[in-house]
Design a protein around this nucleic acid. Structure first.
Lengths: 324, 324
DNA sequence: CTGAAAGCGCTTACAG
DNA sequence: CTGAAAGCGCTTACAG
């Protein structure tokens, strides 16, 4: 049988009210009584039922998190940052991915109405930004971890995409490269525009090839421009995955990296250390973004008003052999 | 204000009991009454509070999951398999990682006592198998996703490590390799012993180097045996990460893969497609293991007795250029 | 400093 | 087929 607050009260010879006060350290309890109650709690191994506490208090001490597919290469970092922060605050983390179409979005929505969690962390809500915005308007605290420049009407954490692009350009320029091939992601993403603008502020020359963040798109872009005869002495790929495709195509074409062509990526995934040659890249602080977003949400739940500007964490250029 | 079952009852002119029966499709309700209630539910946008339902029913319709660091390369696959299955069943998934030492284990333990979830999925519980076993004995349904051969006293899902090792050996033997260097993981892991045994059943010759599943350990093993003058015509690395280190060391030493030395890994991480040359490896069905474990746990929660043998999912040899 | 009682929002015998 | 009432395990005014 489960041990309840009533068992503790009986055993300690006090009321449930008093046990509750001890549990929640409400101060106004005689210290002798309090320590007696604490002893009973320990000896009985009593732990309050989270469901009952939640019902009585009207909060769940749980935050929800809605993510894109967990197999995305940097998801583990973000998630780890979130889990660590949430756990340390004594909150639970409820995970949702909604990657099975409308039905799963609906299910998620009803979890929100069911008050299964007090606040929501969101990453890259492909087609759900509208739904999320509606939930936020209804009063659900939300924080977005935003790699793509959505600029929502609720708090978010982002990174310095523009400065990241600029840092890549400065690095290439410093080693005398002036004719970059830029392999972007989809142009409708805010982060892609920012990375591109930052880069071109510094290095306005070169060629732009629109990719889609996949390895294949990096490979195809290089193959096409090599075939075209487009002259380029370097490549700035908007993410590491497409940079891997770039490296592959260059190797296949017999171009040496970095001697013929220097390559810079974006993200700093683990794979960046394992490419041949290892990839110079602009690091996104994914774990820190997860931690920061979780802290913002928890602070908001604790009553601190949320910042009305996105919180922006700095990128960092990581120099490896593909662009020394 | 939150819409409650009382609001629905009043609006529909019935008792809360009746609304509850409609909600839980208990049959014994007049179909006219039922549809009227359903209309009111829809028009009010009523969703039952999960906390209240959980308290009244004594279950949370939530499963917990305890994982090692989420940045491990194959965690995303497992987690995705679990989340999909759990979501589809209408359950929530509460995530814990306990990677901040004793304090976080304690916190996790108290979540268990708090009945925050009905059952637990566990991956690779480094130092927590004792705790978990105790929880299982106390009545918590548990399923282990087991990459390491723990053979616990509760249900688990595993993969064919022994046959996987054997398939690697058969493949190498078929291309005429007879002097393998085997880079293992830590020998106390059951999976390491199994992979080794399976391999040696087929190919009992060669040299064994104990590694620890890190890239560095693969690299060092090769460097050492190259320096030793140990003759080997192939390498079987017990995971892909150490295989990456193996490839790096071979390249640095000017050995060609696969002409001089063929290399086979284990796992089939995404990186296996991006190494130079791409890595032949034994695929572990991580996503399927996650799905299967989640299904087993849900079935158990639904009353089906759990299988007393581990459920074993097959590995598959994926042939790429490092060992054609 | 302490307790009796109401209430959080449901479900579930029990009675009709 | 339907409802009143008790109960799930807590918290929180309120009164003393």
């Amino acid at each position: 049988m489960r041990v309840t607050i009533a068992d503790v009260a009986r055993e300690a010879g006090v009321s449930k009210t008093t046990v509750s006060r001890v549990l929640n350290t409400k101060g106004e309890v005689d210290s002798g009584t309090a320590s007696r109650v604490r002893e009973v709690i320990a000896s009985l191994g009593y732990v309050p039922s989270s469901g009952a506490v939640g019902l009585a208090r009207g909060t769940s001490r749980t935050v929800g998190m809605l993510t894109p597919p967990l197999t995305w290469p940097w998801m583990g970092e973000v998630l780890q940052g979130v889990v660590d922060t949430v756990e340390a605050a004594g909150y639970g983390l409820l995970l949702f991915t909604c990657n099975r179409g409308a039905e799963s979005v609906e299910r998620f929505t009803s979890q929100v109405s069911a008050r299964a969690f007090d606040g929501l962390l969101v990453i890259e809500p492909e087609n759900t930004l509208g739904t999320i915005t509606a939930m936020h308007r209804e009063g659900l605290p939300v924080v977005l971890i935003d790699d793509r420049g959505h600029h929502p009407e609720f708090p978010s954490v982002a990174t310095t995409n523009r400065e990241g692009g600029a840092s890549a350009a400065r690095h290439l320029l410093a080693s005398g490269r002036t004719r970059p091939l830029i392999v972007t992601g989809r142009r409708h993403f805010g982060c892609v525009r920012d990375r591109l603008d930052g880069f071109r502020d510094v290095l306005p020359t070169g060629t732009i090839a629109e990719g889609d963040f996949t390895e294949l798109s990096g490979q195809l872009a290089v193959e096409r421009h090599l075939a075209d005869g487009t002259p380029f002495d370097s490549v700035f790929a908007h993410n590491d995955l497409s940079a891997v495709g770039v490296l592959r195509a260059l190797r296949a074409a017999g171009r040496s990296v970095p001697d013929d062509i220097a390559v810079v990526g974006f993200d700093d995934l683990p794979v960046a250390q394992h490419t041949e040659p290892p990839l110079t890249t602009v690091r996104q602080p994914m774990r820190e973004m997860g931690e920061t977003a979780a802290r913002m949400l928890l602070a908001h739940l604790g009553g601190t008003p949320a910042p009305d500007e996105p919180v922006v964490l700095p990128t960092e250029l990581v120099v490896r052999r593909s662009a020394p």
